[in-house]
């Protein structure tokens, strides 16, 4: 006999329990968290100063001692800056950018998609047309153009000082660099929310027609109550999966943009711009591009595995591959948006 006050585990506890059974995803979660937390203590961990240039030490191979006797775990770049130090700082920049961009654009997408899907009518028509219109643009081209404009006119574009200072503190960069990163983020968010909005709208449209929403409305519940207690919780699982995928999409898109020279600019380290420099020295120093490649490779794989694990954890009823199909379509949609090929 069960005790009368035994409470069944909540939805989220169950989800977390199921997620834990996905070993790889769990390890990936630990890994990403560790990298991000470590990067927050960059100033403590990093053996050298971020931009400390010493030309005598340039091109030191990994695991070796530079001409002046200093030791560099991952070697040094073409200006003799310590790779390990810059990688840690870059993790802070790249991951924070990806997280901020995805979070903000998901939030905007949820609000817009919910409003459009739940209330329908004129709001829905206008937002759907707008989303459709934005998605006819070749996103990657727009990203490149916007990035190039933002970088070249960085002094003229007004960004609230408080914002760039906050970002500067989080990323351990100065205010000027912070401003540049903020601009890149704004561009990503401006182009990124439409995917989420469309996706949320579609889901809300089907949830809205469910009997439980209808009966709740019949009982006299307000729209706000309905949205918060019925629509949002049911739409949440796919949104979380989309969020994870969007995270890896943003990470990859940011590094691709910086790799091409239109994203975060040197000396602010980002994995993408470190790779773009290393890439031009790869014929003389083949190990060099491997150093920034490694974190990009590890993080994008890890985030995708977490997404995989989350998907399995969030939707145990539908063991079928239907969710997988949806997810793949979504993945494709996100991928097309970043079009980083």
């Amino acid at each position: 006999m069960t005790t009368p006050n035994h409470r069944p585990a909540g939805q989220w506890t169950l989800i977390f329990r199921r997620f834990k059974t996905h070993r790889v995803a769990m390890w990936c979660l630990y890994l990403i968290t560790t990298i991000y937390v470590l990067s927050m203590f960059a100033s403590v961990i990093a053996p050298y100063k971020r931009d400390a240039i010493s030309l005598d030490n340039a091109y030191t191979t990994p695991f070796s001692t530079a001409p002046d006797g200093s030791y560099h775990v991952f070697g040094t770049d073409h200006l003799g800056r310590d790779f390990f130090t810059r990688l840690i700082y870059a993790a802070r920049v790249s991951l924070t950018t990806a997280i901020t961009v995805t979070t903000v654009s998901t939030l905007i997408g949820i609000v817009v998609g919910l409003t459009a899907g739940y209330f329908g009518g004129i709001v829905d028509t206008i937002t759907s047309r707008m989303i459709e219109f934005i998605s006819t643009f070749p996103t990657f081209t727009l990203l490149l153009i916007a990035g190039s404009i933002a970088i070249q006119n960085s002094d003229d574009i007004p960004i609230p000082a408080l914002l760039s200072q906050t970002i500067g503190v989080i990323m351990a960069v100065n205010e000027r660099e912070g401003k540049q990163v903020v601009m890149i983020m704004v561009i990503f968010i401006a182009l990124g929310w439409t995917g989420v909005a469309r996706f949320v709208r579609g889901m809300v449209l089907s949830i809205r027609e469910q009997l439980y929403v209808e009966s709740s409305r019949a009982l006299g519940a307000s729209h706000l109550h309905n949205i918060i207690t019925h629509v949002l919780p049911n739409a949440m699982p796919p949104i979380i999966v989309a969020y994870t995928l969007g995270l890896s999409g943003a990470l990859v898109a940011e590094s691709a943009l910086s790799f091409l020279g239109f994203g975060i600019q040197d000396p602010t380290p980002s994995w993408g711009n470190m790779l773009s420099f290393a890439n031009s020295y790869m014929f003389n120093y083949p190990w060099m591009p491997l150093v920034p490649t490694l974190p990009i490779l590890v993080c994008s794989l890890a985030i995708n595995y977490i997404g995989d694990g989350l998907r399995d954890a969030l939707d145990p009823r539908v063991q079928s591959e239907v969710t997988r199909a949806k997810r793949d379509a979504l993945l494709k949609a996100i991928r097309d948006r970043s079009a980083a090929s």
């Binding site: 890896s248 590094s255 790779l275 790869m282 014929f283 083949p286 990009i296 794989l301 993945l331 991928r335």
Partner: peptide, 21 residues
């Protein structure tokens, strides 16, 4: 899975490192 989660430029650079250099 690996193919679709890795960015193209990472795959490209690894290819150059392996097959060219």
């Amino acid at each position: 899975f690996v193919g679709s989660s890795l960015p193209t430029f990472v795959i490209g650079i690894i290819c150059i490192l392996v097959f060219a250099i």
